[in-house]
Amino acid sequence: MNLTLNIWRQSDPESPGNFDVFNVSDVSPDMSFLEMLDVLNEGLIVHDEEPVAFDYDCREGICGACSLVINGSPHGPQKATTTCQLYMREFSDGEEVWIEPWRVGAFPVVRDLVVDRSAYDRILQAGGFVSVRTGAAPDGNTIPVPKDVADRAFTSATCIGCGACAAACPSASASLFVAAKISHLGLLPQGQTERNSRVRMMLAQMDKEGFGHCSNHAECQSACPKEIDIGRIARMNRDLGRSFIRRT
């Protein structure tokens, strides 16, 4: 299949960017989206042109490194899928594809489609941890955790921190990411001691990084490759309110 690609090019964070048009031919429907870009870049390198910079790491949908807003949707048109797990069979022959970086002020563009997501790392450093020593893995059932609570903590923990939630949010808010991390730790017994300070520190850091404020558009949960839902955000709001009422 043949495709027309409109790709955002930007040489550094300060200079303005623009779309470059590329025509790629003989794309196999079984290629992943990133493999298609690899083929494009090989061609560019052969012709002594600058290849398109984009982020990737595991290519298994579990690391959160790949990004790309494809035809207006973070991680492309398929639900619950990272860009690396998106296959070209989702596109039709002759289609025009628009590829942009995450457009979030707190994620400055480094080059082309690569953005700096260290704002998420700093939010985690502010409070996304448990500092009590938990030792080696305990024997099963020594600390009883109800099954549904464990499940909710686990689904929250599936967040890979890719940034699609902030990229999809009309307000460029990081709420779903922060909320997932807070639920992941705050639902389990080990996370209780720092429950109040965690929600406060992480939210204070989120505001400081210059993300927007959640306006309940719910775009984040439909863009999330791990399908984390906005119920986490409701829980985060409850947790913050609770921190003003209860000491621990």
Partner: peptide, 26 residues
């Protein structure tokens, strides 16, 4: 909040596809 949300995305998307939000919300 509206002003801060606008400033939180200095460069708009050229292509944008909404999946969940409503006209009323925007």
């Amino acid at each position: 909040h509206w002003l801060k949300n606008r400033r939180a995305r200095p460069e708009r998307y050229y292509k944008r596809k909404y999946r969940a939000t409503t006209w009323a919300a925007r």
